[in-house]
């Protein structure tokens, strides 16, 4: 039966891609969602200016888990510049949309990648 979420969301919720952590990650981002206390942690492996691997752990609703999963799919293989340009809209659209109250859950994904890239920049500055 059709629930409140799209099939894409449910697919990523039921079979999330890239769950886990990366040992000695090049960048780690952690963001929380003040609206509901949810949390996402994103690990990146960067090589030659490209994101070669991404893994996540998320404590949150169906939309938060699906957004995390979709985000990792979207950023793998992208350059740092390309990844930084990803917005929550891109993530939500790739999931065939989210209910209006759940848009903020995709914001968590956008913020996680920005935070992980900042961490990478900090670690690799000079």
């Amino acid at each position: 039966m059709a629930g409140p979420y799209s099939e894409k969301v449910m697919d990523h919720f039921m079979n999330p891609r890239n769950v886990g952590e990366i040992e000695n990650a090049d960048g780690v981002g952690e963001v929380g969602n003040p609206a509901c206390g949810d949390m996402m942690r994103l690990y990146l492996k960067v090589d030659g200016g490209k994101i070669v691997d991404a893994k996540f752990r998320t404590f949150g609703c169906g939309a938060a888990i699906a957004s995390s999963s979709m985000l990792t799919e979207m950023i793998k293989g992208k350059t740092i510049e390309e990844a930084r340009a990803i917005t929550n809209r891109h993530v939500a659209d790739a999931l065939d949309g989210l209910p209006p109250v759940k848009i903020h859950c995709s914001v968590m994904a956008e913020e996680a990648v920005k935070s992980a890239l900042e961490d990478y920049a900090r670690k690799h500055a000079g």
Partner: peptide, 25 residues
């Protein structure tokens, strides 16, 4: 959501599951 996927229907008091048809956060 996972319970429902297994055919079990229950309720939650969590904010994240309240009023999914609402308009904003």
């Amino acid at each position: 959501l996972f319970l429902n996927l297994r055919g079990v229907m229950a309720a939650s008091g969590s904010a994240c599951s309240s009023n999914l048809r609402g308009h904003d956060e």
